[in-house]
Nucleic acid binder design. Structure first.
Length: 513
RNA sequence: GGCCCCUUCGUCUAGCGGUUAGGACACGGCCCUUUCAAGGCCGCGGCACGGGUUCGAUUCCCGUAGGGGUCACCA
């Protein structure tokens, strides 16, 4: 049975790179009819775990990544919180200690650090001298009498090689002598992640450890523990990490300021910001950052677009296929397709996937997606025919929040601001514009059928009679009824507004100046 | 600095000894067109470098360079 796991820390946010890792773990499990487990790595945190966990669980759910065991669903290996598994870790440390694979150490942090500094200065690998290692209880007492505090360290081998056959990286070789006597239990008795990780993976019967590349150099010490404890070795697959836009440095949520200097990234944020502003969303909080998944949900991205984009960041099926839904990915996913190099986060490509996925949505689906945004913006979705509006907006709605670009139609009093540049260009500086508008207004006032087709033939007749071309009247008309130079299709716009409002708006425009 | 990893268009990638080095996003142009989108067509643009191995290297090996990760009583 293939079992993979994703092990987030309750930090309060779901990092886009973390999601990618979770997605690959999940896809691998689902593809192979295995199980996906969610474990909470909270060995170091102790406050507000539930609160800090909520956005993470929610984000995964939003994306369609479900788990067979873990918070909310529980399972046969409960608890799934590391903070509740101390008895297991204690037993493991005892065993390591008993079998001579760990020792009590009484070095002070500064002492270790100065040995480390010396090694670096001499350009050689740091190896702890074990000067404060307590080999006997007497040693321990003596150190304690000096006021020292003890930790438990791994007694790593000092010779030989370790060979890891990584599913993605292939054969990776480490010299044991370069590995360090890492702490596994702190002076206060609490346990370090690596120990907990190894114990839990064994306990949860994890068959494949799929994680980001930064853990590759942690692997030897973990394998040492696995071997020392007599556990069976899982398969390893170290994924390349998600990098900053235009760089190979690991993407970090703390470097928002830096990423904002990237034009495309800034555009992504600004677009989101404009939507956030209109729905009164607080954007100073940690979550409003494209590095964090919340961002996309808040402004109305489709989860399937995020998933599709992320799946292709460091994985490919072949030289053609790019568009995938989650079930399709489950069908074709394989670790063989994972690339080795870090993949830069590209806001433009993400947005392209969003567009493509939005294109597949029906009007009904889009109504469902857009309605919450209207409500959050304080607009009444029933104030107009939303289906017609969305249909007219067509593919201009890239994310659900974009519906707010077209909500001028909801303004009841027909008093809208004019885009002055458009007004000048299309009306003021067009000698015939006002006359034509006047004449066309007259035609419209006699028109009862305000359907797009009827309006179009009316317009056609109007143009034929006066021997004018569409641009001569349509641009002016658009500015006259919307105040803007760009917008939806003209006839759809007229239909949605309805006769009364169209005439009123034209009157207002004709009276301007 | 030690150890480890990585390196094909600007970006994501296909390639697994012989290809006009393919696709996608972006970019540029053209077409369509009532604006804006969308769509269609065309174009621009790449194997980091140096040695081998081989009849033949983007592909295999070794160096070099560059990039990155990691060296916590964080996870």
């Amino acid at each position: 049975m293939i079992r993979t796991r994703f092990a987030p820390s309750p930090t309060g946010y779901l990092h886009i790179g973390g999601v990618r890792t979770a997605l690959f773990c999940w896809l691998f499990a689902r593809k192979n009819k295995g199980q996906f487990i969610l474990r909470i790595d909270d060995t170091d945190q102790n406050r507000n775990i539930e609160e800090a966990l909520e956005p993470i669980l929610h984000g995964l759910q939003w994306l369609g990544i479900d788990w067979d065991e873990g918070p909310g669903v529980d399972g046969p290996h409960t608890p799934y919180y590391q903070s509740q598994r101390n008895d297991k870790y204690r037993a493991a440390v005892d065993k390591l200690f008993r079998d001579g694979f760990a020792y009590r150490d009484f070095a002070k942090t500064e002492e270790i650090q100065s040995e480390r500094d010396a090694a670096m200065k001499e350009k050689r690998t740091f190896t702890y001298s074990r000067r404060w290692m307590a080999e006997t209880d007497d040693d321990a007492k003596r150190f304690e009498a000096e006021g020292r505090q003890g930790v438990v360290r791994l007694k790593m081998p000092r010779e030989g090689k370790l060979i890891i056959n990584d599913l993605i990286r292939g054969r990776v070789e480490f010299d044991w002598a370069n590995e360090q006597d890492h702490v596994i239990q702190r002076a206060d008795g609490s346990f370090i992640y690596h120990l907990a990780n190894v114990v839990d993976d064994e306990d949860f019967k994890i068959s494949h450890v799929i994680r980001a590349e930064e853990h590759l150099s942690n692997t030897p010490r973990q394998i040492f523990m696995i071997q020392s404890l007599g556990y069976r070795l899982p398969e390893y697959a170290h994924l390349p990490f998600v990098a900053e836009p235009g760089s190979k440095t690991k993407l970090s949520k703390r470097k928002l300021d830096k990423y904002l200097k990237n034009k495309d990234f800034a555009k992504l944020v600004q677009h989101g910001q404009s939507i956030a502003d209109r729905i009164g969303l607080e954007t100073t909080a940690d979550g409003f950052n494209p590095v964090i998944v919340d961002f996309y949900e808040k402004v109305g991205y489709l989860p399937e677009a995020i998933v599709n984009y992320l799946a292709l960041l460091g994985w490919a099926l072949d030289d053609k296929a790019e568009f995938f839904t989650l079930p399709e990915l489950v069908d074709v996913f394989s670790l063989d397709g994972v690339t080795k190099g870090a993949a830069s986060f590209d806001p433009q490509k993400l947005f392209a996937f969003e567009e493509k996925h939005m294109l597949t949505k029906t009007i009904e689906e889009k109504i469902g997606l857009c309605t919450p945004f209207l409500e959050k913006a304080g607009l009444d979705p029933r104030a107009t025919d939303l289906g017609k509006l969305i249909s007219a907006a067509g593919d201009r709605i890239k994310v659900a929040g974009d519906i707010l670009d077209f909500t001028d139609f909801f303004l009841a009093d027909d008093v809208f601001p004019y885009d002055e540049a458009a007004f000048e260009k299309r009306i003021e500086n067009e000698p015939e514009a006002k006359t034509l508008l006047e004449l066309f207004r007259h035609e419209l006032s006699k028109q009862d059928d305000f359907g797009p087709a009827a309006l179009e033939s009316l317009m056609q007749r109007f143009m034929d009679e006066r021997k004018i071309k569409a641009p001569q009247i349509i641009h002016a008309l658009r500015v006259a009824v919307t105040g803007k130079g760009v917008g939806l299709g003209m006839f759809e716009t007229l239909e949605i507004l309805g006769k009364d409002r169209v005439l009123r708006r034209m009157d207002r425009t004709l009276a301007k100046r």
